[in-house]
Nucleic acid binder design. Structure first.
Lengths: 224, 224
DNA sequence: TACCCGAACCAATTCTGCATTGGTTCGCTT
DNA sequence: AAGCGAACCAATGCAGAATTGGTTCGGGTA
Protein backbone atom coordinates (compact mmCIF):
# COMPACT_ATOMS: atom_id res chain seq x y z
CA UNK A 1 0.00 0.00 0.00
CA UNK A 2 1.35 3.35 -0.99
CA UNK A 3 0.60 6.19 1.34
CA UNK A 4 -1.25 9.07 -0.21
CA UNK A 5 -0.73 11.79 2.34
CA UNK A 6 -0.43 15.32 1.06
CA UNK A 7 3.29 15.32 1.60
CA UNK A 8 3.74 11.99 -0.16
CA UNK A 9 1.78 13.10 -3.21
CA UNK A 10 3.69 16.36 -3.36
CA UNK A 11 6.95 14.50 -3.13
CA UNK A 12 6.02 12.10 -5.90
CA UNK A 13 4.94 15.03 -8.05
CA UNK A 14 8.28 16.74 -7.56
CA UNK A 15 9.99 13.47 -8.47
CA UNK A 16 7.97 13.32 -11.64
CA UNK A 17 8.95 16.88 -12.58
CA UNK A 18 12.62 16.18 -11.95
CA UNK A 19 12.47 12.96 -13.97
CA UNK A 20 10.44 14.37 -16.82
CA UNK A 21 13.18 16.90 -17.62
CA UNK A 22 10.64 19.27 -19.08
CA UNK A 23 12.04 22.21 -21.01
CA UNK A 24 11.37 25.51 -19.27
CA UNK A 25 7.83 26.51 -20.00
CA UNK A 26 7.02 22.96 -21.00
CA UNK A 27 3.59 21.46 -20.49
CA UNK A 28 2.73 18.81 -17.92
CA UNK A 29 0.36 15.96 -18.74
CA UNK A 30 -3.32 16.71 -18.10
CA UNK A 31 -4.42 16.38 -14.50
CA UNK A 32 -6.47 13.27 -15.26
CA UNK A 33 -3.57 11.42 -16.88
CA UNK A 34 -1.09 12.59 -14.30
CA UNK A 35 -3.34 11.49 -11.46
CA UNK A 36 -3.60 8.02 -12.94
CA UNK A 37 0.11 7.65 -13.60
CA UNK A 38 0.89 8.75 -10.05
CA UNK A 39 -1.81 6.44 -8.66
CA UNK A 40 -3.52 9.34 -6.95
CA UNK A 41 -6.95 10.79 -6.99
CA UNK A 42 -7.41 13.97 -8.95
CA UNK A 43 -8.31 16.08 -5.93
CA UNK A 44 -5.13 15.05 -4.12
CA UNK A 45 -3.06 15.82 -7.19
CA UNK A 46 -4.72 19.20 -7.52
CA UNK A 47 -3.81 20.02 -3.94
CA UNK A 48 -0.17 19.27 -4.68
CA UNK A 49 -0.31 21.25 -7.92
CA UNK A 50 -1.77 24.18 -6.01
CA UNK A 51 1.25 24.08 -3.72
CA UNK A 52 3.65 24.08 -6.65
CA UNK A 53 1.72 26.93 -8.21
CA UNK A 54 1.96 28.94 -5.00
CA UNK A 55 5.69 28.30 -5.04
CA UNK A 56 5.86 29.63 -8.58
CA UNK A 57 7.16 26.31 -9.93
CA UNK A 58 4.23 25.83 -12.27
CA UNK A 59 1.29 27.86 -13.55
CA UNK A 60 -2.07 26.70 -14.84
CA UNK A 61 -4.83 27.95 -17.08
CA UNK A 62 -8.21 26.50 -17.98
CA UNK A 63 -8.20 24.99 -21.44
CA UNK A 64 -4.47 25.42 -21.84
CA UNK A 65 -2.91 23.11 -19.29
CA UNK A 66 -0.26 23.17 -16.58
CA UNK A 67 3.17 24.58 -17.43
CA UNK A 68 6.55 24.81 -15.75
CA UNK A 69 8.09 28.16 -14.94
CA UNK A 70 6.27 31.40 -14.38
CA UNK A 71 3.23 32.65 -16.17
CA UNK A 72 4.31 34.68 -19.22
CA UNK A 73 3.37 38.33 -19.03
CA UNK A 74 0.09 38.97 -20.69
CA UNK A 75 0.07 42.73 -20.73
CA UNK A 76 -0.96 44.01 -24.11
CA UNK A 77 -0.44 47.69 -24.65
CA UNK A 78 -4.08 48.61 -24.47
CA UNK A 79 -4.44 51.20 -27.18
CA UNK A 80 -8.05 51.84 -26.27
CA UNK A 81 -7.05 52.79 -22.74
CA UNK A 82 -4.52 55.26 -24.09
CA UNK A 83 -7.06 56.70 -26.50
CA UNK A 84 -9.55 57.39 -23.75
CA UNK A 85 -6.97 59.08 -21.60
CA UNK A 86 -5.27 61.30 -24.15
CA UNK A 87 -6.14 64.04 -26.61
CA UNK A 88 -4.83 65.41 -29.91
CA UNK A 89 -2.57 67.90 -28.14
CA UNK A 90 -0.88 65.17 -26.13
CA UNK A 91 -0.51 63.08 -29.24
CA UNK A 92 1.37 65.87 -30.96
CA UNK A 93 3.49 66.35 -27.85
CA UNK A 94 4.40 62.69 -27.85
CA UNK A 95 5.20 62.76 -31.56
CA UNK A 96 7.43 65.81 -31.11
CA UNK A 97 9.25 64.07 -28.30
CA UNK A 98 9.54 60.67 -29.90
CA UNK A 99 9.79 60.84 -33.67
CA UNK A 100 12.83 63.11 -33.89
CA UNK A 101 14.87 60.57 -31.97
CA UNK A 102 13.59 57.81 -34.22
CA UNK A 103 14.76 59.89 -37.16
CA UNK A 104 18.16 60.24 -35.50
CA UNK A 105 18.46 56.45 -35.21
CA UNK A 106 17.31 56.10 -38.80
CA UNK A 107 20.06 58.46 -39.96
CA UNK A 108 22.63 56.27 -38.27
CA UNK A 109 21.28 52.90 -39.36
CA UNK A 110 19.29 53.17 -42.60
CA UNK A 111 20.36 50.96 -45.48
CA UNK A 112 20.80 52.51 -48.94
CA UNK A 113 17.72 50.72 -50.21
CA UNK A 114 15.69 52.08 -47.30
CA UNK A 115 16.88 55.59 -48.13
CA UNK A 116 15.71 55.03 -51.69
CA UNK A 117 12.31 53.94 -50.34
CA UNK A 118 12.15 57.11 -48.24
CA UNK A 119 12.79 59.24 -51.32
CA UNK A 120 10.16 57.33 -53.26
CA UNK A 121 7.50 57.75 -50.56
CA UNK A 122 8.37 61.44 -50.27
CA UNK A 123 7.84 61.96 -54.00
CA UNK A 124 4.60 59.99 -53.95
CA UNK A 125 3.35 62.31 -51.21
CA UNK A 126 4.25 65.39 -53.22
CA UNK A 127 2.45 64.10 -56.29
CA UNK A 128 -0.62 62.89 -54.42
CA UNK A 129 -3.76 64.08 -56.25
CA UNK A 130 -5.91 64.16 -53.10
CA UNK A 131 -5.43 64.94 -49.44
CA UNK A 132 -6.34 61.40 -48.51
CA UNK A 133 -3.61 59.96 -50.68
CA UNK A 134 -1.18 62.56 -49.39
CA UNK A 135 -1.83 61.47 -45.81
CA UNK A 136 -1.45 57.86 -46.82
CA UNK A 137 2.03 58.46 -48.23
CA UNK A 138 2.88 60.76 -45.34
CA UNK A 139 2.06 57.95 -42.94
CA UNK A 140 4.07 55.54 -45.02
CA UNK A 141 7.04 57.92 -44.96
CA UNK A 142 6.98 58.26 -41.20
CA UNK A 143 6.75 54.50 -40.75
CA UNK A 144 9.59 53.90 -43.19
CA UNK A 145 11.72 56.15 -41.01
CA UNK A 146 10.82 53.91 -38.10
CA UNK A 147 11.82 50.83 -40.08
CA UNK A 148 15.09 52.50 -41.05
CA UNK A 149 16.01 52.84 -37.38
CA UNK A 150 16.66 49.08 -37.51
CA UNK A 151 15.21 48.84 -34.02
CA UNK A 152 12.11 46.66 -33.89
CA UNK A 153 11.24 47.95 -30.45
CA UNK A 154 11.32 51.59 -31.57
CA UNK A 155 9.23 50.56 -34.55
CA UNK A 156 6.72 48.84 -32.30
CA UNK A 157 6.43 51.91 -30.10
CA UNK A 158 6.00 54.08 -33.19
CA UNK A 159 3.22 51.79 -34.43
CA UNK A 160 1.50 52.05 -31.07
CA UNK A 161 1.79 55.83 -31.17
CA UNK A 162 0.37 55.90 -34.68
CA UNK A 163 -2.49 53.60 -33.77
CA UNK A 164 -3.44 55.98 -30.97
CA UNK A 165 -3.05 58.98 -33.25
CA UNK A 166 -5.32 57.50 -35.87
CA UNK A 167 -7.93 56.62 -33.26
CA UNK A 168 -7.81 60.12 -31.74
CA UNK A 169 -8.00 62.00 -35.04
CA UNK A 170 -10.77 59.71 -36.25
CA UNK A 171 -13.08 61.27 -38.77
CA UNK A 172 -10.76 64.12 -39.64
CA UNK A 173 -9.92 62.54 -43.00
CA UNK A 174 -9.83 65.13 -45.69
CA UNK A 175 -11.29 63.45 -48.73
CA UNK A 176 -11.74 66.52 -50.86
CA UNK A 177 -10.96 66.48 -54.57
CA UNK A 178 -8.52 69.28 -53.81
CA UNK A 179 -4.86 68.34 -53.81
CA UNK A 180 -2.17 69.68 -51.48
CA UNK A 181 -0.77 72.92 -52.90
CA UNK A 182 2.65 72.55 -54.55
CA UNK A 183 4.16 74.81 -51.90
CA UNK A 184 2.73 72.85 -48.98
CA UNK A 185 5.03 73.39 -46.02
CA UNK A 186 5.50 69.68 -45.44
CA UNK A 187 7.17 69.05 -48.77
CA UNK A 188 10.34 70.97 -48.02
CA UNK A 189 10.34 69.69 -44.43
CA UNK A 190 10.11 66.11 -45.64
CA UNK A 191 12.98 66.74 -48.02
CA UNK A 192 15.14 68.10 -45.21
CA UNK A 193 14.47 65.04 -43.09
CA UNK A 194 15.21 62.57 -45.84
CA UNK A 195 18.34 64.48 -46.92
CA UNK A 196 19.63 64.49 -43.36
CA UNK A 197 19.07 60.75 -43.08
CA UNK A 198 20.78 60.18 -46.41
CA UNK A 199 23.71 62.29 -45.17
CA UNK A 200 23.91 60.19 -42.01
CA UNK A 201 23.47 63.36 -39.99
CA UNK A 202 21.51 62.25 -36.95
CA UNK A 203 21.23 65.63 -35.29
CA UNK A 204 20.07 67.29 -38.50
CA UNK A 205 17.49 64.56 -39.01
CA UNK A 206 16.17 65.00 -35.48
CA UNK A 207 16.04 68.78 -35.89
CA UNK A 208 14.29 68.55 -39.24
CA UNK A 209 11.74 66.12 -37.88
CA UNK A 210 11.11 68.28 -34.85
CA UNK A 211 10.63 71.34 -37.01
CA UNK A 212 8.29 69.42 -39.29
CA UNK A 213 6.11 68.21 -36.45
CA UNK A 214 6.00 71.64 -34.83
CA UNK A 215 4.89 73.03 -38.16
CA UNK A 216 2.17 70.38 -38.39
CA UNK A 217 1.13 71.22 -34.85
CA UNK A 218 0.87 74.91 -35.68
CA UNK A 219 -1.20 74.16 -38.75
CA UNK A 220 -3.45 71.93 -36.65
CA UNK A 221 -4.22 74.83 -34.29
CA UNK A 222 -4.97 77.14 -37.21
CA UNK A 223 -7.50 74.77 -38.69
CA UNK A 224 -9.58 74.70 -35.55
CA UNK B 1 -23.05 43.03 -76.51
CA UNK B 2 -21.25 44.72 -73.69
CA UNK B 3 -17.69 45.64 -74.35
CA UNK B 4 -15.19 44.09 -72.00
CA UNK B 5 -12.10 46.18 -72.59
CA UNK B 6 -9.85 46.78 -69.61
CA UNK B 7 -11.12 50.33 -69.25
CA UNK B 8 -14.75 49.27 -69.41
CA UNK B 9 -14.32 46.62 -66.74
CA UNK B 10 -12.45 49.06 -64.53
CA UNK B 11 -15.19 51.60 -64.97
CA UNK B 12 -17.95 49.13 -64.15
CA UNK B 13 -16.00 48.04 -61.08
CA UNK B 14 -15.73 51.63 -59.86
CA UNK B 15 -19.46 52.01 -60.45
CA UNK B 16 -20.09 48.96 -58.34
CA UNK B 17 -17.95 50.33 -55.52
CA UNK B 18 -19.75 53.68 -55.63
CA UNK B 19 -23.15 52.00 -55.66
CA UNK B 20 -22.38 49.43 -52.99
CA UNK B 21 -21.72 52.18 -50.44
CA UNK B 22 -19.38 49.93 -48.53
CA UNK B 23 -18.33 51.16 -45.11
CA UNK B 24 -14.65 52.05 -44.96
CA UNK B 25 -12.70 48.85 -44.60
CA UNK B 26 -15.69 46.83 -45.78
CA UNK B 27 -15.30 43.61 -47.72
CA UNK B 28 -16.09 43.20 -51.40
CA UNK B 29 -17.81 40.07 -52.72
CA UNK B 30 -15.46 37.23 -53.64
CA UNK B 31 -13.82 37.53 -57.04
CA UNK B 32 -15.85 34.65 -58.45
CA UNK B 33 -19.20 36.18 -57.44
CA UNK B 34 -18.18 39.67 -58.45
CA UNK B 35 -17.00 38.48 -61.83
CA UNK B 36 -20.35 36.84 -62.48
CA UNK B 37 -22.40 39.81 -61.34
CA UNK B 38 -20.35 42.13 -63.54
CA UNK B 39 -20.59 39.67 -66.44
CA UNK B 40 -16.84 39.52 -66.75
CA UNK B 41 -14.26 36.78 -66.66
CA UNK B 42 -12.32 36.40 -63.50
CA UNK B 43 -9.00 37.28 -65.09
CA UNK B 44 -10.35 40.55 -66.45
CA UNK B 45 -11.82 41.42 -63.07
CA UNK B 46 -8.51 40.63 -61.41
CA UNK B 47 -6.74 43.01 -63.75
CA UNK B 48 -9.11 45.79 -62.75
CA UNK B 49 -8.76 44.91 -59.07
CA UNK B 50 -4.99 45.05 -59.44
CA UNK B 51 -5.33 48.59 -60.72
CA UNK B 52 -7.51 49.62 -57.78
CA UNK B 53 -5.06 47.99 -55.42
CA UNK B 54 -2.18 49.93 -56.98
CA UNK B 55 -4.20 53.09 -56.46
CA UNK B 56 -4.66 52.19 -52.83
CA UNK B 57 -8.45 52.04 -53.16
CA UNK B 58 -8.62 48.40 -52.11
CA UNK B 59 -6.33 45.78 -50.64
CA UNK B 60 -6.46 42.00 -50.89
CA UNK B 61 -5.24 39.00 -48.99
CA UNK B 62 -5.43 35.28 -49.75
CA UNK B 63 -8.06 33.59 -47.66
CA UNK B 64 -9.40 36.87 -46.32
CA UNK B 65 -10.87 38.68 -49.28
CA UNK B 66 -10.78 42.10 -50.88
CA UNK B 67 -11.36 45.16 -48.73
CA UNK B 68 -11.81 48.88 -49.27
CA UNK B 69 -9.39 51.40 -47.86
CA UNK B 70 -5.80 50.84 -46.86
CA UNK B 71 -4.32 47.65 -45.55
CA UNK B 72 -4.23 48.02 -41.77
CA UNK B 73 -0.67 48.13 -40.49
CA UNK B 74 0.34 45.04 -38.60
CA UNK B 75 0.31 46.98 -35.36
CA UNK B 76 1.96 44.76 -32.82
CA UNK B 77 0.89 46.41 -29.64
CA UNK B 78 1.29 42.93 -28.26
CA UNK B 79 4.21 43.05 -25.89
CA UNK B 80 4.88 39.36 -26.26
CA UNK B 81 5.36 39.85 -29.99
CA UNK B 82 7.81 42.68 -29.36
CA UNK B 83 9.70 40.56 -26.85
CA UNK B 84 10.20 37.76 -29.34
CA UNK B 85 11.44 40.16 -31.96
CA UNK B 86 13.86 42.25 -29.95
CA UNK B 87 16.94 41.79 -27.76
CA UNK B 88 18.58 43.53 -24.82
CA UNK B 89 20.74 45.69 -27.09
CA UNK B 90 17.72 47.01 -28.95
CA UNK B 91 15.96 47.67 -25.67
CA UNK B 92 18.82 49.85 -24.50
CA UNK B 93 18.87 51.60 -27.86
CA UNK B 94 15.18 52.38 -27.54
CA UNK B 95 15.61 53.60 -23.96
CA UNK B 96 18.49 55.88 -24.98
CA UNK B 97 16.37 57.29 -27.78
CA UNK B 98 13.16 57.65 -25.82
CA UNK B 99 13.70 58.33 -22.15
CA UNK B 100 15.86 61.47 -22.50
CA UNK B 101 13.02 63.18 -24.34
CA UNK B 102 10.59 62.07 -21.66
CA UNK B 103 12.92 63.65 -19.12
CA UNK B 104 12.93 66.84 -21.18
CA UNK B 105 9.13 66.98 -21.07
CA UNK B 106 9.22 66.24 -17.36
CA UNK B 107 11.56 69.19 -16.77
CA UNK B 108 9.08 71.47 -18.51
CA UNK B 109 5.93 70.15 -16.90
CA UNK B 110 6.63 68.55 -13.53
CA UNK B 111 4.69 69.87 -10.57
CA UNK B 112 6.56 70.74 -7.37
CA UNK B 113 5.06 67.77 -5.58
CA UNK B 114 6.19 65.46 -8.37
CA UNK B 115 9.71 66.84 -8.06
CA UNK B 116 9.57 66.05 -4.36
CA UNK B 117 8.50 62.50 -5.20
CA UNK B 118 11.43 62.19 -7.60
CA UNK B 119 13.85 63.23 -4.85
CA UNK B 120 12.25 60.77 -2.46
CA UNK B 121 12.50 57.84 -4.89
CA UNK B 122 16.10 58.77 -5.65
CA UNK B 123 17.02 58.65 -1.98
CA UNK B 124 15.19 55.36 -1.46
CA UNK B 125 17.24 53.89 -4.31
CA UNK B 126 20.47 55.10 -2.73
CA UNK B 127 19.58 53.58 0.60
CA UNK B 128 18.34 50.28 -0.79
CA UNK B 129 19.81 47.38 1.21
CA UNK B 130 19.70 44.91 -1.72
CA UNK B 131 20.08 45.07 -5.47
CA UNK B 132 16.52 43.92 -5.94
CA UNK B 133 15.16 46.79 -3.88
CA UNK B 134 17.50 49.18 -5.67
CA UNK B 135 16.10 48.13 -9.02
CA UNK B 136 12.58 48.48 -7.69
CA UNK B 137 13.19 52.11 -6.70
CA UNK B 138 15.14 52.74 -9.88
CA UNK B 139 12.12 51.59 -11.87
CA UNK B 140 9.88 53.76 -9.74
CA UNK B 141 12.11 56.76 -10.37
CA UNK B 142 12.05 56.29 -14.13
CA UNK B 143 8.29 55.92 -14.14
CA UNK B 144 7.84 59.00 -11.95
CA UNK B 145 9.76 60.93 -14.59
CA UNK B 146 7.27 59.64 -17.12
CA UNK B 147 4.37 60.78 -14.95
CA UNK B 148 6.00 64.18 -14.53
CA UNK B 149 5.91 64.69 -18.28
CA UNK B 150 2.16 65.22 -17.81
CA UNK B 151 1.60 63.37 -21.08
CA UNK B 152 -0.41 60.20 -20.61
CA UNK B 153 0.53 58.96 -24.04
CA UNK B 154 4.25 59.32 -23.36
CA UNK B 155 3.66 57.55 -20.07
CA UNK B 156 1.82 54.73 -21.83
CA UNK B 157 4.64 54.28 -24.30
CA UNK B 158 7.13 54.29 -21.45
CA UNK B 159 5.16 51.61 -19.66
CA UNK B 160 5.13 49.51 -22.81
CA UNK B 161 8.88 49.94 -23.17
CA UNK B 162 9.40 48.94 -19.55
CA UNK B 163 7.19 45.87 -19.87
CA UNK B 164 9.29 44.71 -22.80
CA UNK B 165 12.49 45.51 -20.93
CA UNK B 166 11.42 43.48 -17.92
CA UNK B 167 10.48 40.54 -20.11
CA UNK B 168 13.73 40.64 -22.06
CA UNK B 169 15.99 40.89 -19.03
CA UNK B 170 14.04 38.09 -17.41
CA UNK B 171 16.04 36.07 -14.94
CA UNK B 172 18.75 38.67 -14.56
CA UNK B 173 17.34 39.77 -11.22
CA UNK B 174 20.17 40.28 -8.80
CA UNK B 175 18.82 39.02 -5.52
CA UNK B 176 22.11 38.96 -3.65
CA UNK B 177 22.35 40.10 -0.05
CA UNK B 178 24.95 42.57 -1.29
CA UNK B 179 23.85 46.17 -1.56
CA UNK B 180 24.82 48.67 -4.26
CA UNK B 181 28.12 50.36 -3.32
CA UNK B 182 27.77 53.91 -2.01
CA UNK B 183 29.69 55.21 -5.01
CA UNK B 184 27.52 53.40 -7.56
CA UNK B 185 27.66 55.38 -10.79
CA UNK B 186 23.89 55.66 -11.04
CA UNK B 187 23.54 57.66 -7.84
CA UNK B 188 25.23 60.80 -9.12
CA UNK B 189 23.60 60.37 -12.53
CA UNK B 190 20.16 60.16 -10.93
CA UNK B 191 20.92 63.28 -8.95
CA UNK B 192 21.90 65.18 -12.08
CA UNK B 193 18.67 64.18 -13.78
CA UNK B 194 16.46 65.16 -10.87
CA UNK B 195 18.33 68.44 -10.37
CA UNK B 196 17.92 69.34 -14.03
CA UNK B 197 14.20 68.63 -13.84
CA UNK B 198 13.91 70.69 -10.66
CA UNK B 199 15.73 73.53 -12.43
CA UNK B 200 13.29 73.30 -15.35
CA UNK B 201 16.26 72.75 -17.65
CA UNK B 202 14.93 70.40 -20.30
CA UNK B 203 18.14 70.06 -22.28
CA UNK B 204 20.16 69.32 -19.17
CA UNK B 205 17.62 66.72 -18.09
CA UNK B 206 17.75 65.03 -21.47
CA UNK B 207 21.55 65.08 -21.47
CA UNK B 208 21.74 63.69 -17.96
CA UNK B 209 19.30 60.93 -18.76
CA UNK B 210 21.15 60.03 -21.94
CA UNK B 211 24.43 59.92 -20.05
CA UNK B 212 22.87 57.76 -17.35
CA UNK B 213 21.48 55.23 -19.81
CA UNK B 214 24.73 55.06 -21.76
CA UNK B 215 26.48 54.38 -18.50
CA UNK B 216 24.02 51.60 -17.70
CA UNK B 217 24.54 50.21 -21.19
CA UNK B 218 28.29 50.18 -20.73
CA UNK B 219 27.96 48.44 -17.39
CA UNK B 220 25.66 45.90 -19.03
CA UNK B 221 28.34 44.99 -21.57
CA UNK B 222 30.99 44.66 -18.85
CA UNK B 223 28.90 42.20 -16.89
CA UNK B 224 28.68 39.79 -19.79
C1' DT C 1 -16.18 13.13 11.50
C1' DA C 2 -12.90 14.06 8.09
C1' DC C 3 -10.88 12.98 4.04
C1' DC C 4 -10.25 11.16 -0.55
C1' DC C 5 -11.90 9.08 -4.75
C1' DG C 6 -14.70 8.92 -8.80
C1' DA C 7 -17.91 10.93 -11.69
C1' DA C 8 -20.28 14.53 -13.72
C1' DC C 9 -20.54 19.10 -15.21
C1' DC C 10 -18.76 23.99 -16.55
C1' DA C 11 -16.15 27.38 -19.12
C1' DA C 12 -12.02 28.53 -21.54
C1' DT C 13 -9.09 26.89 -24.95
C1' DT C 14 -7.29 24.09 -28.54
C1' DC C 15 -7.76 20.94 -32.31
C1' DT C 16 -9.62 19.42 -36.62
C1' DG C 17 -11.90 19.03 -40.80
C1' DC C 18 -14.23 21.67 -44.26
C1' DA C 19 -15.58 25.68 -46.87
C1' DT C 20 -13.95 30.05 -48.63
C1' DT C 21 -10.74 33.18 -51.00
C1' DG C 22 -7.03 35.37 -53.57
C1' DG C 23 -3.17 33.69 -56.62
C1' DT C 24 -1.72 30.71 -60.45
C1' DT C 25 -1.64 27.66 -64.37
C1' DC C 26 -3.51 25.32 -68.32
C1' DG C 27 -6.25 24.35 -72.32
C1' DC C 28 -9.85 26.32 -75.19
C1' DT C 29 -12.31 29.77 -77.75
C1' DT C 30 -12.81 34.04 -80.05
C1' DA D 1 -3.06 37.65 -78.70
C1' DA D 2 -6.32 37.97 -75.23
C1' DG D 3 -10.06 36.61 -72.45
C1' DC D 4 -12.71 32.83 -70.51
C1' DG D 5 -13.51 28.73 -67.79
C1' DA D 6 -11.82 25.22 -65.03
C1' DA D 7 -8.80 23.17 -61.98
C1' DC D 8 -5.55 23.45 -58.42
C1' DC D 9 -2.73 25.71 -54.47
C1' DA D 10 -1.92 27.88 -50.05
C1' DA D 11 -3.63 30.89 -46.66
C1' DT D 12 -7.51 31.99 -44.00
C1' DG D 13 -12.02 31.64 -41.62
C1' DC D 14 -15.44 28.95 -39.34
C1' DA D 15 -18.01 25.58 -36.69
C1' DG D 16 -18.14 21.67 -34.02
C1' DA D 17 -15.63 18.18 -31.43
C1' DA D 18 -12.20 17.21 -28.12
C1' DT D 19 -9.27 18.72 -24.35
C1' DT D 20 -8.26 20.88 -19.92
C1' DG D 21 -8.25 23.21 -15.44
C1' DG D 22 -11.92 24.42 -12.00
C1' DT D 23 -15.98 22.98 -9.32
C1' DT D 24 -19.59 20.28 -7.20
C1' DC D 25 -21.76 16.17 -5.38
C1' DG D 26 -22.46 11.52 -3.69
C1' DG D 27 -20.26 7.49 -1.85
C1' DG D 28 -16.75 5.05 0.42
C1' DT D 29 -13.05 4.60 3.93
C1' DA D 30 -10.25 5.16 7.85
Amino acid sequence: MIENTDAAVLSRLRDFLATAQLPDGGRLPPERDLAESLDVGRSALRKALATLQAEGVVWRHVGKGTFTGERPIDTVADINAMVHRTNPLEVMGARIAFEPEVARCAALNATPSQIAELRSAMLKAQQAPTWRLYEQWDNRLHRLIGEASQNSLLLGLLDTLNAVRRAVTWGRLRDTPVRPPPDHHSFEEHARIVDAIANRDGSAAADAMRRHLRSVEGHMRDVR
